[in-house]
Simulated scan of single mutants.
Amino acid sequence: MRCAKLLLCISLITLTGCWDRKELNDRAILLGWGMDYKAGMYHATAQLATTSQFSAEQGGGAGKTSSFVTSVGKGKNIRSAADDMDLRLSRSLFAGHRRSILIGEDLAKHGIAKVIDEYSRYIIVRLRTDMFIVKGGTANDILKQQYPFERIPVLGIFKIHSHLVIGAETALRDFLIAASSEGSTPVLPVLQVLKNVEKENKKNKANESTIIFAGIAAFDEQLKLIGYLDAKTNAMRHWIMGNIKDLSLTPDVPEEHGNMSVDSRQLKSKVTVDLKGDNVTINIRLSGNGNILENNTKLDLAKSDNIMYLQKALNKDVEKEAQNAVQKAQKIKADVFGFGEFVHRKYPKRWKTMQKNWQQTFARAKIEVVSDIIIRKTGQLGEPLQLKKKKS
């Protein structure tokens, strides 16, 4: 019994509690982080949540009182820029809830190898983090921008990416994988500030500009920006890579002076490559099912011949768009589709000699696309309303 009491006393003495704890009110909660490069210096911008503004009574939007503040710092590298920012803050930075990292265009052109090195070493940076390039602007521009649907604008950025693109939350991880793999070009999603937006309410200054998703940015082996591909091209890229199962399509039907909207489902992709000497042929086969949501032609979809006609027009348009997507990547010599991986697997010995100049080889590769989408549903059967009006 005495031994038990002695052990209890010793344990009470050694248990000192949370001696290094920090209260929430002593932390600056970091949700968005941006890096820019100006005149040989790295400029950091942090979007911080003002926790005092979060209450049950407060509604959505920025409100009269902003729910965030931005802080800046600069230095000769990322760490020194963060240290400089600390001199301006009364609280210590807490990055455990950081959702997005933004890179300005000038820094992307200068090269982000040092940025990636710091983020890959720093243990608090999560790989499940979105990382964006700011097209035609700076990270500071985006992080200071109000967003009407979210109290914290950086959360709006995250939700835009999650809503539109597969791979949200993993942009940093995917970039690191592509940068270290053979036969693939690393890419990052792109944001852009759209200015002079038409205002529905002239008193609402938040509508003067907004943030939009603008596709992807491609990088070379030195992790320097080499070009952009738009959002439409990126959607086709995901289909070719087999990353998506549904996509909204709006093909033109020139012969009928109209167009249609198709909800495509169960999308599949098959890629094969062939080598003949130094010539590479990339064969892409796209397939899936489609439901017609909108028919802006004069064709009566109650007739099976007209459905087959639109199906043929749909596949022709998909083949054209896929060709255009690959050709845009070829112009900037960036294999954002990972075709090099297919060559590597099928021709491992040849790949050893092709690997070094693969991007140049990809730029002159022959692309063949075949689309096989089957229209399954046409909605409510019957003649288009414009035909009925003419008859009456």
Rank of each mutant, 00 (worst) to 15 (best):
G136C: 04
G136R: 07
G137V: 07
G137R: 09
G137S: 08
G137Y: 10
A139W: 04
D141Q: 10
D141H: 09
L143I: 00
L143C: 00
K144L: 12
K144Q: 13
K144A: 09
Q145R: 12
Q146M: 12
Y147A: 11
Y147R: 07
F149A: 14
P153Q: 14
V154R: 02
V154F: 03
V154S: 02
L155Y: 07
L155I: 10
L155H: 04
I157S: 09
I157W: 14
I157R: 05
F158N: 06
H161W: 08
H161T: 10
S162D: 10
H163I: 05
L164K: 12
L164P: 00
V165L: 11
I166K: 09
G167I: 00
G167M: 01
T170R: 15
A171D: 13
L172P: 02
L172I: 04
L172E: 03
R173F: 10
D174W: 12
L176M: 12
I177D: 05
A178V: 02
A179S: 15
L188R: 08
L188E: 07
V190K: 08
Q192D: 05
Q192K: 15
V193A: 06
V193W: 08
L194R: 14
K195C: 03
K195Q: 13
N196W: 10
V197S: 11
V197P: 03
K199H: 09
E200G: 13
N201S: 15
N201R: 09
K202C: 02
K202V: 11
K202F: 12
K205I: 14
K205R: 08
A206K: 06
A206N: 09
N207R: 11
E208S: 15
E208V: 11
S209V: 05
S209F: 10
T210D: 08
F213M: 15
A214C: 04
G215V: 07
G215S: 06
I216G: 02
I216S: 12
I216Q: 08
I216P: 01
A217F: 07
A217C: 05
A218C: 02
A218I: 01
A218V: 01
A218Q: 01
F219H: 03
F219I: 02
D220A: 04
Q222D: 13
L223I: 04
I226A: 07
I226F: 07
G227I: 08
A231R: 11
K232V: 04
T233V: 08
N234L: 06
A235Y: 08
A235N: 09
A235L: 09
M236T: 03
M236A: 02
M236I: 12
H238S: 14
W239S: 00
I240P: 01
M241F: 03
G242S: 01
G242M: 00
I244A: 00
I244N: 00
K245C: 00
D246K: 02
D246E: 05
L247D: 00
L247A: 00
L247I: 03
S248P: 01
L249S: 06
L249K: 07
P251R: 10
V253Y: 01
P254L: 01
E255K: 15
E256D: 06
E256C: 08
G258M: 04
M260W: 03
M260P: 01
S261L: 08
S261D: 05
V262S: 02
V262P: 02
D263P: 00
L267P: 00
K270Q: 11
K270R: 13
K270S: 05
V271N: 06
V271C: 04
T272M: 13
L275A: 15
L275F: 13
L275R: 15
G277P: 02
G277A: 03
